[in-house]
Simulated scan of single mutants.
Amino acid sequence: MRAIGLVTVVLIGLSLPAGRLSAAAPAPRILLTDVSHALEGRSLVITGGVTNAGSAAVAPLVIDASGFGPAGDLVAMGSDGIPWEMGPGQTERFSISIPLGRMLIREYVVQVSRVRAPAPYSSARRGVDVALYREHLRTLVMLRGDLFKGVLTVRAEGPGLPVAVVTADAQVLVFNPLLEGFQPVRLSLDLDLNRSRTVFVGSPHAFLISLRLVDLRLKVTWSD
């Protein structure tokens, strides 16, 4: 009797490494353009454009501005956003208004990023010229005056402000013995910021009526 052996042949298919099903998405190229600023009332308004220079749409985007004071410390922040989708080549405008107090912004950094992204796509740094704050500084300088026994003491206060000299106008009533009465006298005083100046008004019998800031001379640079 002849035995017939059954041989089971198992074919093992060798699989080749699969090629990429799709190319990796290109990294977004988001640019900040035309970043500038202006003073509007008591706010520093930062404006500019955000351009999608990549080949794919992106959304949403947030634009953050950080303002730094004369000493380099962070003193103010503001934000704007682009919640809609930006297609390739598209540019959108942004505007960030930062209210100013006594702490002025010497320079600021603007960053654009995706919401909750670990790093910004693009950033821009800009400095603010001292002269931009001329009118705003007039509201921050405080004048103090005292008249005692004919000696007028005036002080202009503004710690940390980029002001060199303040011109003040003082109105006083001085007793004139020839007229046997008081007469108004106007004094114009140049004051170094945060220093006092004394002036004898001509008679120990005098009264300070008013004290007004007329002008101020700014420092040439923040570091002066």
Rank of each mutant, 00 (worst) to 15 (best):
G127C: 03
G54M: 02
V62F: 06
R126E: 12
Y108V: 12
T91V: 07
A38C: 12
V174K: 05
T167N: 09
L132F: 08
V172M: 05
I105L: 03
V165E: 03
L104C: 11
P159R: 00
Q90A: 10
F175Y: 12
A56Y: 05
F68E: 01
Y133A: 03
V62R: 06
L44D: 11
P120A: 00
S122M: 05
P159Y: 00
F175L: 02
L104A: 12
I96V: 13
N52A: 04
I63D: 07
D146S: 13
V172T: 09
P162S: 00
A131N: 07
L173T: 10
D64M: 07
V141E: 01
G150F: 08
T91F: 02
L104R: 08
S122Y: 09
S66T: 11
V110M: 06
D129V: 10
E85T: 15
A57Y: 09
I63Q: 06
S95C: 08
G145Q: 05
A131D: 10
D169W: 02
I98T: 07
V128S: 09
M103Y: 15
M86S: 10
S122K: 04
G72L: 01
G127Q: 04
V154N: 03
P177D: 00
H136Q: 07
P177G: 01
V58F: 09
R93Y: 05
V154K: 01
A53R: 11
K149R: 12
R93D: 09
V50M: 00
R126D: 07
G81K: 10
H136L: 09
L100Q: 08
P120G: 05
L104D: 11
M86R: 03
I105T: 11
G158H: 07
M77E: 13
L161H: 09
R144S: 14
A131H: 11
T139G: 14
S66M: 02
A38G: 14
P162L: 00
S122W: 06
L74I: 11
L44H: 10
S66D: 13
Q111Y: 00
R125W: 05
D146P: 15
F94K: 05
R116C: 09
V154M: 01
S97G: 14
E135W: 05
T47V: 09
G181V: 07
M86E: 08
A38N: 08
A164W: 01
V109Y: 01
L61T: 10
S95Q: 09
A65L: 06
V45W: 02
G78K: 01
L132T: 13
S95P: 15
T167R: 03
L152C: 13
V50N: 02
L147S: 10
L178T: 12
G49V: 04
